[in-house]
Nucleic acid binder design. Sequence first.
DNA 1: AAATTTGTAATTCAACATTTC
DNA 2: TGAAATGTTGAATTACAAATT
Lengths: 462, 462
Amino acid sequence: MPINSFVDYHMSWRPERRELTRPIYLSLARMLERDITEGFLPPGTKLPPQRELADFLDINFTTVTRAYKTCELKGLLHAVTGSGTFVSANAVRSVTISRDRVPVECIDFGLVASFEQSNFMIAEAVKKVAEKAGVERLLNYDDPAGIPHQKEAALRWMRPLGIEAATDQVAIVSGAQNALTITLLALFEPGSRIAVDEYTYSNFIELARSLRIKLIPIPGDDSGMLPEELDNSCRNAELQGVFLMPSCCNPTAIFIPNPRRKALAEVIEKHGLIVIEDDIHAALLHGTMPENGIPLRQMLPEQTVYICSTSKSICSGLRVAYIVFSDAMRERMLRAIYHVNVKTSSLDAEIITEIITSGRGTDIVAYKKSLAKSANDLFADYFPQPDDPGHPLSFFRWLRLPNPVHASRFESDLLAKGVRVFHSERFLAGTASRDHHVRVALSSTESREELRKGLEILRSHL
Amino acid sequence: MPINSFVDYHMSWRPERRELTRPIYLSLARMLERDITEGFLPPGTKLPPQRELADFLDINFTTVTRAYKTCELKGLLHAVTGSGTFVSANAVRSVTISRDRVPVECIDFGLVASFEQSNFMIAEAVKKVAEKAGVERLLNYDDPAGIPHQKEAALRWMRPLGIEAATDQVAIVSGAQNALTITLLALFEPGSRIAVDEYTYSNFIELARSLRIKLIPIPGDDSGMLPEELDNSCRNAELQGVFLMPSCCNPTAIFIPNPRRKALAEVIEKHGLIVIEDDIHAALLHGTMPENGIPLRQMLPEQTVYICSTSKSICSGLRVAYIVFSDAMRERMLRAIYHVNVKTSSLDAEIITEIITSGRGTDIVAYKKSLAKSANDLFADYFPQPDDPGHPLSFFRWLRLPNPVHASRFESDLLAKGVRVFHSERFLAGTASRDHHVRVALSSTESREELRKGLEILRSHL
DNA sequence: AAATTTGTAATTCAACATTTC
DNA sequence: TGAAATGTTGAATTACAAATT
């Protein structure tokens, strides 16, 4: 029997004892999920401690643990030892970012596109490939990891970025997100732990969640993840990997300087972590900083998966990315590629190959860089941030909000005014809801005029 | 202390007590995995019962349960209440099928290609699309599930197959395997159970294994899965879904007749299972049987995911498949598409669309049908199987071997003679290593002559 | 047909780790 | 600084279900 009657206590959640059916933990989890999704327990609510609720329901407290855990794995809750269990900020809605169902009439600073104005150059390459002899050979099941000359082009593209690899250490897949899925499936398992920045690309967060891979947020500073913090986390919990975007972290735009990269590499090597290095912006940012970033793949070739997408630098719609891996990983990576894709369209890969080998890729990158420069200059006019640690040519900026705001209300208010942005809360890997920021994509508007108009609306809203 | 010394008993596995570290169940699972992959415990070995091993190690028997369970989810074991726990047939090697690293000089009856001789017709469509105005609009992030007119074409393609759906119930993805990954990620979770035929497409087996989804093999007869057996399994264990290829099961080539489909649908509806209906051969086989198959999607629209790939029927290299789902599934499906692919290349989708709307698709299908007819006739000359229950136009045949053989030795002996086939053991979802078969792909050779030569070698080998 | 063997699952117990105050 | 609050995890207990003999 319950020790106390609890009539006088305040408990944020009081499930009906009579509604409990066996198995208890499942029915409790169902009730909890229902009350969260129906809004009775709004985001941020502190749930009763396990022992207290167990006492109230006259069950063992680890049965509550299980019910809470079930909801936590679904992303509805997060729990902190010592503090309690809380309803997640993103419990109700999905934080997945896509261009599906965006109101047509809005200025999109949400999804980070890639200055699609350059796509007429791609259209030319499409024509060129289509007219070549032997297109038929691009249309079968052969070479699931890419045709040899396509892989050569891939290596040629990555060489200036500091990547040297053999052709059997590279594979062609369908974009960076696809590469991440493949890598997580190939090298990790449910329950694995991967270190990430406190603010992390939200689609990676949800992908990991759906694969039941746990992300461990590591504190960072203006130069990115802190090596000593990573070292700490490795000591406390068994970590299998670390996810990094060294040339331009999404969403914070931070470029990790080489000394920091080296310090991180040392810690990573010491603990034998697998590095997932998403260098999606590398080609675009190369040559614009006093010193080019050294990829972690170069420092730790045996334990790094290097992902180089052409979506941002060349063309977003063709879905071509390169993955570089070590010999020890090859078998597992190829198998995962086969399970997820069978193969990537050789036609698309051939178009990108044509663009690279013809030298046109360099032109496209230069053009996108000039657009990025111009967009960032305009942004700086509206929001001067002299101490902004982000990369100066980033396709998006990380803007600190002067006052705390309600994240999803902020987004929807601004959307009502015709501008879509994403609040920092979407990018939270863990719990810590510290400062408030918005990520502002500069590469998705069709003209400088549209960009200006959107920035105007954003500034007046703040 | 252990009750008996066990010195006199035979136990198939005697892990070192001293090697156990805490947590016990994990270290025990690791030892078990090691001993299986290193071959000390060959496939089929019966492991000691949980209680016996627990007694031997002086631990609680549910700790052994957990260790066994861990290995079972990895696909290394399977357990049957009452009988015991056994090492899986495919525990050690991968059964993934791909065209990577096939000896160049072999006749490939392994991977099921799609009579690639018709690809010159696709090359024409590529040219046509490339020359159209507005190719740029195919090259951005828009419409992740497919451009509206492409989805219309998809529905037009599927309508004769018995599929009626709204445009927001269909999405374009990158081939059937990709569709399966997306479906499993969207609608199932680690630990979910899906019913499958005893012989099942081996890439689906491995995909499920990597997602820790458990496949429950259901006995069948010449008309496919047995409804009463499915009903039984549903009663005994909580199943969430069922995977079916009704128009031509891979690898057995069985076409499920309509009465059987209806009986299965009844059981499925009763238990509320999600149907994954991979109708990859539907377009090719339509109109060749006395009665066309009614898709399960038509009978159970709310609980079916219908997958219609164009890889086999139109072109394998372009990686385009259609998924049809119910309104209740939409949100989860779109999110999974975004996590795995972001989107499928609109260019590839447009080429397929062009082929469908121009009516060329029907020509291609007719051509492939004629090739399939001819190949099957040739096969029947070499291996008359008057009572073969498979579909007469199947791209592969399921050939019973007169005598039991060693599966992987059989494959490698034949490969040494220049022919690649796959033994039935690769397709075993569960345990029962019953009859011996080989799957012979008829659609992967480049000419009738090559096919004949391969069949000759195969016959003389038997 | 009943008893036995064997695996499954929910719950409870106990020890522990982290955070807060 | 250390005690209290709070969540985590492994293992044991218990009841049960299926297959075998």
